[in-house]
Design a protein around this nucleic acid. Structure first.
Lengths: 230, 230
DNA sequence: AGCTAATGTGACGTTCACGTGACACTATCT
DNA sequence: AGATAGTGTCACGTGAACGTCACATTAGCT
């Protein structure tokens, strides 16, 4: 990955080292910060392209840092991946709501880490450039507002289109119904969350004839996710 | 210079102001963008006739933007003039390689700037605007302001003609009514967006007798698109 | 296996976006 | 000046899209 800088924020040197090795293998440039203060300095001075942020830190917690960054226009758009221990799963929700783009739980697989980082970079790039997004044989071309599979057009209503667009921009990440409501419908919406199920159904139905059957997955007790192979 | 729109991309407000003054003196219409994001939005929404692009910008650099534009058919042909500081002369080569049409170094002479812009417009005008566009059996000859299908002339009002011309220049791209208003009618227009529907209707009606029935497509909840087979 | 909560699914009434023709007003031409 | 073509707005009709509900099905538990 050319020219991308990743800021690693974690108080344990061992973890930082592991992350740095994995990232440098994948050709990312790394900066490290061992506490909130260093992180704050680095994010304004170095403007990294992405931040790996440990959740549990002494003094100032990760979520506090994250909130602060999201409030500042200069750092608002920098993607943040949270590092959490298995046991902290409940704080995940808070983290995602605070604006984290993804999370990795420790212990992590280096390969997975790099894959997720790349996904996020792809997403960020495509948010700006509205270049076509493709998975397998499906191509979504935002500028044409069209979706095709093996060249054949997929018929989607406006809502299904936006839903699919959102899923494609955040592949392999699960969303609660509330999050979907906020991001696909718009923030001031008063509809029944179960309505989402129906639109999920309609989206699945539209993709089904093309053999895209297990892409929109339900995450029981949580929400939905768009899974894409490897 | 009548009707030409110039997009100014620079993060410094002072520079933008100077450029705007110079350009408006010469009767260009100006749009401004203070970062890569705004520039990207503007170039797809407003489709300016020319871009003045600052080289040194935080986040996404000018060269990155330029490369992206050159890859997209819709923006590929929009001429770009780079703004560079004296000290950055070496990056000139890269910029010209990436597809910049010209460059101006800061501090610039307003007179020189306008002169170069006019030169580029003259060149582009002779290169592009007169060459006939054809899809299937339809031929639009801009220099003659005529459209024929299998040799037979198509009767179009001025507005329908401009609408068709715009669609032909951006095939397979969907536009909102607002975008059509900005690009076909002109930017300072106060008419009802639904009026566009009527003109779409008139355009369709004019093409229909020739068997061109599904070319002007409606994109529900969004706008319209001119689709051309493969 | 049986139970329960969560999700899948088809149907239905309503709303809303778009298509379409008519009409009045304006600009342009003879 | 009168005629004609072009344009913007409106009113009405139609079909698509949406949200909700009722009921079927499934997953995950004990």
């Amino acid at each position: 990955m050319d020219n991308k800088t990743v800021l690693i924020v974690d108080d344990e040197a061992a973890i930082r080292d592991m992350l740095r090795v994995a990232l440098e293998m994948a050709n990312f440039r790394c900066i490290e910060a061992k506490n909130a203060y260093e992180a704050q300095v680095s994010i304004v001075d170095d403007l990294p392209d992405l931040v790996l942020l440990d959740w549990m830190m002494p003094e100032v917690s990760g979520i506090e840092l994250l909130r602060r960054w999201r409030r500042n226009p200069d750092t608002k758009k920098i993607p943040v991946i949270m590092l959490t221990a298995k046991a902290e799963e409940e704080s995940l929700v808070k983290g995602l709501d605070a604006g984290a783009d993804d999370y990795i739980s420790k212990p992590f697989s280096p390969r997975e880490l790099v894959a997720r980082i790349k996904t996020i970079f792809r997403r960020v790039a495509s948010e700006i450039s509205d270049s076509p997004i493709s998975i397998d044989e499906m191509i979504m071309d935002p500028s044409a507002r069209s979706v095709t599979i093996t060249g054949k057009p997929v018929s989607l209503g406006p809502t299904e289109y936006r839903l699919l667009e959102f899923f494609l921009m955040h592949q392999n990440r699960a969303f609660t119904r509330e999050q979907l409501l906020n991001n696909v419908w718009g923030n001031n919406v008063y509809i029944d969350e179960r309505t989402i199920d129906v639109h999920i159904r309609r989206l699945r139905k539209a993709l089904e004839p093309f053999g895209y059957e297990n892409y929109v997955q339900t995450v029981r007790g949580f929400g939905y996710r768009m899974a894409v192979p490897e």
